[in-house]
Each structure stands twice: as C-alpha cells, then as structure tokens.
Amino acid sequence: MEKDKQPKDSNIYVQMGIFAAILFVSQLISDLFPKSFVVPTSLIAMILLYILLACHIVKLHQVAKFGDFMIGLIAFLFVPSGIQLAAHLDIMKKEGLQDIIVIIISTIILLVVIAYVGALVMGIHHKITGTKDED
C-alpha cells in the first residue's frame, strides 16, 4: 500500500514531539467547543494527524514507529477505563445485568445495521457508476 520508498524512521524524540504538538493544538481546539457538544482532544488529534499525513506535511516515517507502538499498547491502556467502574458499583448492583444484556444486543445491532446499510449504499454506488464490487 505504501507508495513512498520507505525512508529511515525519524528519531523517536521527533516522533513524540510531533504527537505532543498535535495534541497540544487539539486540546486548544477542543476547549472551544461547548459542554453540550463535546469534541474530545483525541478525536481532533486523530483527524488533524490524518489531514497532515494526507497533505504530506507530516510524512509516514515521521510518526509511524511511535504510532504503531502506541496502538500496540492500546488494550493495556484501556485497563484504567474499565476499572473506573469501581467508583460506580451502585449502578452495576442496580441494573448491571440489564446493562450487559443491552450491550450484547447493541453490538449485534451495530454489526447488522452497518453491514446492511453499507451493502445498500454500495449497491447504489455500483449501480450508478456501473462498476462491480471491489476485487
């Protein structure tokens, strides 16, 4: 998929610096949104990084090594978010089982709805353009 002939990875401090700089700007942008319409810093940072990569302002080799490392850690990084529930055990006692059932059903809802809406939209796309589903 990568077109550019893999140049050498940038220095890891440069990579972290790029991440830190984008996060800082994203934090400033995130603060502009009102409380009723939260746009999380990480979402803004994700989109900014994509735009910078797509416009070739930031090159893949300048962020890929640190980024892949962080994505590799992500399951572990979610541990505190899960343990957070320790502060809300009252909710779990009251309706924990219902919550879990709804979550299981919701997962299947998301899978089914997006798959079939997707198939429908792609079907229309192929009809209009006269192309077939990809290779």
Binding site: F19, I22, A45, M46, G67, I71, I74, V79, P80, A87
Partner: peptide, 29 residues
C-alpha cells in the same frame, strides 16, 4: 479507587490520547 488507584490509573489513561490519535496512521495506510 479514588485515593489509591486513580493517581496511577490517570497516568496510564492520559496515554490513551496519543494512542487514539495514532489510529490516523492505519487510516492513512
């Protein structure tokens, strides 16, 4: 949780920011 777990938990939690942001890389690929 608040007194003993949260100080360390928050440190790990903060690193979700760069990790989530990094999802832009597989998208760009």
């Amino acid at each position: 949780y608040k007194k003993f777990y949260l100080p360390g938990g928050n440190m790990i939690f903060w690193f979700l920011n760069p990790a989530t942001m990094a999802f832009a890389i597989p998208l760009y690929r």
